[in-house]
């Protein structure tokens, strides 16, 4: 019992530490560059990171279930190509774009789930293989061509537009709306549904989960399917922001998203992680990048800062856990 509270304490601490870190870093940037704390800038940070944050919701669910998914950027790229090819050639509407990309993502995610379940190989290995397979086949078939020439309606970045008093337009932007929707849905599933509880149970102790009668396959199908769905939907947002589909726009960023989710308190061992924590972790990395850019510090330094942030934060968390475990010796009978 004591161990249980220990873990939740660190967990609360983690979110608290992230908020403090964000406030301190935010204040420093605001003092140095007053523009930093402006609606425009913060809004810009949100929009330009929205699609990665949507994918992060999927990664969070996979990590909680005790798995890991490296293939989601490949899934997103495949979804983007299928969606863009159909939309550019046949037209359609925004809903159709999301539907196509979402379905493709769901399908590829389900393939991951089936492979993880049947092959009994660690998910990192399965998803590295499917990353190679999905992406390799995609580029082999499409020749890695860039796609552009989206229809006019696709270029609209707002779902609803309003007019300010001075006549300028502002609106409820698509990236933000979808991000908010993804966050709320993920939060509700994880927090209030049996399905969410099953995901936590599976990650916490798969054998115990199986013995209390949780259908592991169905749960994994949901977990990887959800990851694929998020990747698919996020890919439409990315295409909508860039207005082009490029083969190398998303691939290679999988570890970046993973780092943000882990920074937010999800553990690779499974069973822990929350939506607010993930958002905070994501936001911390995003404001550091944005602030450094505003200060005119060369982009080359960003990686150094982010690397330091990851190393320091995971070391502190892990060290705390190690000390807690040493305090109360736990005999783990397997």
């Amino acid at each position: 019992m004591k161990r249980q509270t220990g873990i939740t304490d660190i967990f609360k601490n983690n979110e608290f530490v992230l908020i403090v870190a964000i406030l301190i870093i935010g204040t420093i940037f605001t003092i140095l560059k007053p523009n930093f704390f402006s609606i425009n800038n913060l809004y810009g940070i949100l929009v330009s990171n929205s699609y990665l944050a949507i994918m992060a919701m999927g990664v969070l669910v996979v990590l909680i279930s005790g798995g890991i998914d490296i293939s989601f950027t490949a899934t997103a790229t495949v979804a983007q190509y299928v969606m863009a090819t159909i939309i550019i050639n046949n037209g359609g509407n925004m809903f159709l774009a999301f539907l196509i990309a979402g379905l493709v993502g769901l399908a590829l995610g389900s393939i991951n789930a089936i492979l993880v379940y049947t092959l009994k190989v660690p998910s990192i290995i399965v998803t590295i293989s499917t990353l190679n397979a999905f992406y390799g086949l995609l580029i082999f078939i499409t020749g890695g061509k860039w796609l552009y020439g989206f229809p006019m309606w696709f270029m609209d970045k707002n779902l609803v537009s309003f007019q300010r008093a001075d006549g300028s337009l502002f609106g409820l932007s698509m990236p933000i709306t979808l991000l908010v929707a993804a966050v709320i849905v993920t939060w509700i599933i994880l927090r209030f549904t049996t399905l969410g509880r099953k995901v936590y149970a599976l990650g916490g102790n798969p054998e115990a989960a199986r013995r209390i009668g949780i259908n592991i396959f169905k749960t994994q199908l949901f977990v990887y399917g959800f990851m694929g769905l998020m990747a698919g939907l996020a890919s439409v947002i990315q295409a909508n922001i860039m207005l082009t589909v490029a083969p190398n726009a998303l691939i290679g960023r999988e570890l970046e998203v993973l780092a943000a989710v882990v920074l937010g308190g999800a553990s690779l061992a499974g069973g822990t992680g929350t939506v607010p924590g993930t958002l905070l972790g994501f936001f911390l990395i995003a404001i550091v990048q944005n602030g450094l850019t505003m200060l005119g510090i060369s982009a080359y330094w960003h990686k150094i800062f982010i690397g330091m942030v990851i190393i320091v934060s995971v070391s502190i968390t892990a060290y705390q856990r190690k000390r807690n475990e040493e305090k109360g010796a736990v005999i783990d009978v397997r």
Partner: peptide, 15 residues
Amino acid sequence: FDVSAILATLGTSTL
């Protein structure tokens, strides 16, 4: 620090 190898080396790799 008992950091999982994936995370530790992901961090150093970025750095």
